[in-house]
Computed example of a mutant assay.
Amino acid sequence: MQVGINLLCLAGYITEAHLPQIRQLKALGYDGVEVPILSGDPAHYEWLAGELDAIGLRRTSTSVIPSPDANPLSADIAIRARGVAHLDWIMDCALALGSESIGGPFHAPIGHFTGSGPSPDEIRYGAEAHHAMAETAKANGITLSLEHLNRFETHFLNTMEQARAYVAAVDHSAFSIMYDTFHANIEEQKQPRAIELIAGHMGVLHISENDRGIPGRGHIDFPEIFKATRATGYDGWVTLEAFGGGLPEIAAATRVWRPLFPDYDTLFSESLAFIRGQWEAAA
């Protein structure tokens, strides 16, 4: 098991200004970071890769579909082409970063709804795009870890029953699911059962409390989640995802406008101790 942290707690675009806090993560004992790839170009992520190598941190990444005008699920062939081009851009940046896994909801625009669940055509278009993306991922020794979101953020992928079916539709060994405890807390009746449904197909485990703050301070039953995860044989990335106020670039997507942790020192140290302690206790 490797412990990571989603750097969206710091910013949506990581620059030199964030390196002191990233060095702090290494000093505390994090194995890696999950880098948001939301803007920029491969040259920037190649620079960041060098900095992270020097610090000694491995990395995964997270990305989204930015708007309905670049939706890989669209019935409009031109829009769908822009969506596929965006997936190619995500891949180029992730490869430059040296990302081990590409995660996040890179399936449909967040907050964009059709008035119903995913249509057969949307599933078909998505599966085609993600299968092609997985081919590139496999050729470069990395995996895709597609993230489900709750029903208030997307109509496309909400439950692990849907996720299992979508894994079968994509049908590629380099394609998996990023399981997020925050979204599952809304959508799943029992998280252990949801985790069992995608046994063997979990690419990243996102540890996110019910309020998006420090894990262990809310009501999510993490002991049962860690026990269920370990029972599947999973031994990959266990990544903290927490959000704070004051980051305009992500507030609109996460609906977080208030501080959810007292300071970064507390977030970093308490969360790491909690994750490692829960993982060991679940053995």
Rank of each mutant, 00 (worst) to 15 (best):
G4A: 04
N6R: 01
N6D: 08
N6W: 00
L8A: 02
I14C: 05
T15G: 12
E16T: 11
E16I: 03
E16N: 08
A17D: 15
A17V: 10
A17T: 10
H18C: 04
P20T: 13
I22C: 06
K26C: 05
A27M: 03
L28F: 07
G32C: 07
I37H: 07
S39Y: 13
P42T: 15
L52N: 01
L52V: 08
R59Q: 11
S61R: 02
T62N: 15
I65C: 01
S67V: 11
D69S: 15
D69Y: 08
N71E: 08
P72V: 02
P72T: 09
A75Y: 10
A78V: 14
R80M: 07
A81C: 10
G83S: 12
D88A: 15
W89F: 11
M91P: 00
M91G: 01
D92I: 07
A94N: 15
S99T: 15
G103R: 00
G104F: 07
T114I: 15
G115M: 06
P118I: 01
P118G: 00
S119L: 12
D121W: 11
E122A: 09
E122N: 14
Y125G: 03
Y125E: 07
A127T: 12
A134H: 04
T136H: 13
T136I: 08
A137R: 05
A137M: 13
N140Q: 06
L149D: 03
L149G: 00
R151I: 05
R151C: 10
E153V: 10
F156T: 07
L157H: 04
N158I: 15
N158Y: 11
M160S: 05
A168I: 08
A169E: 12
D171H: 07
F175V: 04
D180A: 01
H183M: 02
A184K: 05
I186D: 00
E188T: 08
Q191W: 09
R193A: 06
A194D: 02
L197C: 05
H201V: 03
G203W: 04
E209C: 07
E209D: 13
R217G: 13
G218K: 00
H219F: 06
I220T: 15
E224M: 11
E224H: 11
Y234H: 01
G236P: 07
V238E: 05
L240I: 08
L240K: 05
F243K: 02
G246H: 12
A251V: 04
T254G: 01
R258Q: 14
D263Y: 14
Y264N: 09
T266L: 04
L267H: 03
S269L: 06
L272G: 00
A273Y: 00
F274D: 00
R276A: 05
G277Q: 12
W279D: 01
E280F: 05
A281E: 13
